Simulated assay, not measured.
Amino acid sequence: MTSTTGSTHTSTALEGRTALVTGATSGIGKAVAQNLARQGAEVVLHGRDRTRGEALVKEIAAEGGSARFVAADLTDAEDTLRLAAEAGAVDILVSNAGLYEFAPTAATDAASFDRHIAVNTRAPFLLVGALAPGMAGRGHGSIVLVGSSAARLPAPIGAAYGAEILTRYWATEFGPAGVRVNTVSPGPVHTEGTRAMLGDHIGALDTTNARGRAGDPGEIAEIVSFLAGPASSYVNGAVLYADGGERSALPA
């Protein structure tokens, strides 16, 4: 199950479904949004940069898909709830937006910690609380959290990064009503964000797993689309590790 960000395969597996993807204007989120649109979903794109968001709407339309953009700041609780309201009755929620700052605990101040908690934990909590009851009322829905190998591979940096601790709880809470909740936990992936963080050390990403290379956003998007669609109807409460066979965390 591999792909690239530029994949143009199409399917009707998600036709008639509406998907909200947070952090959709770059990296994994962008690839996920494009892939869901290619499978027939109407995609609500979330991001902070309206220019990039509207550009992606046009890209998806050019491929025959349907998308609209809603800007929101996930560090703000009220803005997060506004995003949920403007997204409307969604069938699929992909909580992809996240923060990860390379800093040891002593160098992580309260403001930085609060940003991490707001985006990585509170925002998905608020979005699920606002959107999952509607899915349950309609008898179907899929929630996919995009986590990170950083949540299970301790390192001397980034301790404020959120883990996938709510997956099983939500799967138990909403599963009986037909709403599935799963997490994808990627290892290192080549994105604009990782290039910005690592700079000249970007090659280190290709040395951390058994595949001998970092992942492509499109590969993660294929897994998200699988979990969002009918082919995974019996998968609930799972954390799927997409890391190429992880060997170790990145060095400090």
Results as ranks from 00 to 15, higher is better:
Ile202Leu: 13
Arg82Thr: 13
Arg38His: 13
Ala231Cys: 08
Val21Cys: 13
Ala85Trp: 12
Val21Met: 13
Gly27Met: 05
Pro217Asp: 08
Val32Gln: 12
Leu153Cys: 05
Asn96Asp: 12
Leu99Gln: 02
Leu99Ala: 04
Leu36His: 08
Ala106Asp: 13
Gly141Trp: 01
Phe113Gln: 03
Phe102Tyr: 02
Ser149Gly: 12
Phe174Asn: 02
Thr5Ile: 09
Leu166Pro: 00
Val181Gly: 01
Arg122Gly: 04
Thr18Ala: 11
Phe69Tyr: 15
Leu127Tyr: 08
Lys58Ser: 14
Val32Arg: 09
Ile220Arg: 09
Val181Ala: 00
Val189Ile: 15
Ala221Asn: 11
Ala55Leu: 09
Val43His: 11
Ala19Phe: 04
Glu63Gly: 15
Gly175Leu: 06
Ile92Gly: 08
Ser112Cys: 06
Ala171Tyr: 00
Ala171Met: 01
Leu126Tyr: 05
Ser95Trp: 03
Tyr161Arg: 13
Glu63Gln: 15
Gln34Trp: 14
Ala37Met: 08
Gly40Arg: 10
Glu164Asp: 15
Met135Arg: 07
Ala62Lys: 04
Pro124Lys: 02
Gly203Thr: 12
Gly137Asn: 08
Ala249Val: 11
Thr8Glu: 12
Glu222Met: 13
Ala61Asn: 06
Phe102Asn: 07
Trp170Pro: 07
Glu78Tyr: 02
Pro230Ala: 10
Thr8Ala: 11
